[in-house]
Nucleic acid binder design. Sequence first.
DNA 1: GTTATTTGATATGGTCAATAACAATTATCA
DNA 2: TGATAATTGTTATTGACCATATCAAATAAC
Lengths: 169, 169
Amino acid sequence: MTVSKAAGKSAGATRARRDAADAPPEALQLGELSEHLGFVLKRAQLRVFENFLRCVASLQLTPAQFSVLLLVEKNPGRNQTEIASTLGILRPNFVAMLDNLESRDLCARIRSTNDRRSHILVLTDKGKAVLTRAKKLVASKHEARLNDVLGTANREALIAMLSKIANEF
Amino acid sequence: MTVSKAAGKSAGATRARRDAADAPPEALQLGELSEHLGFVLKRAQLRVFENFLRCVASLQLTPAQFSVLLLVEKNPGRNQTEIASTLGILRPNFVAMLDNLESRDLCARIRSTNDRRSHILVLTDKGKAVLTRAKKLVASKHEARLNDVLGTANREALIAMLSKIANEF
DNA sequence: GTTATTTGATATGGTCAATAACAATTATCA
DNA sequence: TGATAATTGTTATTGACCATATCAAATAAC
């Protein structure tokens, strides 16, 4: 990674390595790339998810799992199809996710008495407690970091723009 | 997906379906979720990638492939390790990607005369032509759509904030 | 000149996303 | 009512990505 020769810049004509006096290899130029929305968006998203995982590492929650717990808390009495589709998760892929949360006693499936095909989702007491702790960690460590980097006003503007893109693009 | 009963809202006590006169089932409340950076960021990114794929569908380029072509064009004479690591792609995973681009005659691997371990990457003539067409499609269809949704000033502010997050978070 | 490092490549496993299909249950309607 | 269609949760399966270990060839370092 550090031995490449900058085009036409090396002192020796056919030399594979730099002399001690040579300049370090130049960093690659991103060029246009850094102006493309998709590129910066993807990179920012990866960083934010990394940071989220670190912030709630003590609770072993992924962003997706956190979203499920939040949505179930906010919408008690809904079934798997409703919760999954709201999060953009396909029903088949939601099964293993719920198996995980249920095996950790964070969430429970309850057969609906109205429609015995469906499973009503609820948070367990442990699930509520974990979610409360997770919210505190996310607010104090994760979202607070965003305020440090951007400032509160910019933070709100960013969220608004991203929501607009998610809804209107 | 449309038969669930809102908690305590249904007229009939143990009825599984709505009467024709019943209100439509309420949409789920996102609540806090829509204020969480990771959530809106991920959703925006998925929409943007979808839109990108549609805009350059005629050229059969993914965002990742477009990034590779752009970076190779901007940095002629670099090897696989350098291009891949700059894009955050691991070297093993970059091999198949290059196999694809090379099989389509968009990109070529050339054994370096300086260091015969490494492959210098260059765009073929066809690769240059495809990239030129891709840039035009992306500018006129994809990035232009962002301007329509946000306005030019906000677009630039958004890119700046996302870059800051990608670099400083 | 022997050993360590680097480059591209292969093999492999893990996590997600997407589709088809199935049993149980419920909806539709002749 | 009874036959048919649709829905719910589930399984199986596939492909796209991401990550680690390892290898042969070439080079670096001592």
